[in-house]
């Protein structure tokens, strides 16, 4: 049984993965039929095809995964209703997924599960979490219990992001009296 890391209000934990990730658009259709009863994560191009086609599929048990060079913004508003969006990291050094996550959460207001898939490793989890991911499919050859430690690395952050949009300096200022700001120049 496959496991993922899931961040819930109670904290981050290792849980059973209830989704089936269909990597390949070519074979996904036939596999979709095989797994008719299961929750599946479709490649974005296949999701587009199904959406435009006649075959019905259940949006409540369908997720979509976005490749790092997929154009998704034209359909972003439709993706908001999905229970899950996954963002692929073809290599952990490819940082596009961080901006995709940031935009899905802040610009489009996606509230469902946002999952990092692909080359997902312990030492990047903290940054991914900050950008709005709340579930992580850690690379299969890695120890997922070890990876969980990656979320606990820091309690201080200078800048705001999805997890906490208020930068440290505004918290520092809470202790100090606030100053009228509007037209002040250094």
């Amino acid at each position: 049984m496959k496991h993922i890391i899931r961040v819930l209000p109670a904290g981050a934990d290792i849980v059973v993965d209830e989704w089936l990730l269909l990597h390949d658009s070519e074979t996904a259709l036939s596999r979709l039929a095989e797994h008719a009863m299961q929750r599946v994560i479709l490649p974005l191009p296949l999701w587009r095809t199904l959406r435009d086609g006649t075959e019905s599929f259940d949006p409540s048990s369908t997720g979509v995964w976005i490749a790092s060079d997929d154009e998704y913004e034209d359909v972003a508003c439709e993706l908001l209703d999905l229970p899950l969006i996954a963002v692929d990291f073809p290599s952990f050094r490819d940082g596009r997924g961080y901006s995709v996550a940031y935009l899905l959460r802040t610009r489009y207001g996606f509230r469902g599960e946002l999952r990092a898939i692909g080359d997902v490793l312990r030492d990047q989890l903290f940054y991914m979490r900050r950008c709005g991911f709340d579930s992580f499919e850690v690379r299969a050859d890695k120890d997922i219990r070890d990876a969980l430690k990656g979320l606990a690395a820091y309690t201080i952050r200078y800048q705001g992001s999805v997890d906490d949009p208020v930068p440290l300096f505004r918290k520092r200022a809470e202790a100090a009296p606030s100053l009228p700001d509007e037209h002040w120049e250094p």
């Binding site: 490819d94 940082g95 961080y98 900050r130 200078y158 800048q159 440290l168 250094p186």
Partner: peptide, 21 residues
């Protein structure tokens, strides 16, 4: 220098931009 320091803090471990091209 004040703006340089403010920018230093903003850019230090900025989670979105840790793996730029």
């Amino acid at each position: 220098r004040p703006l340089a320091e403010i920018l230093r803090q903003w850019s230090t471990m900025n989670p979105e931009f840790a793996f730029l091209p």
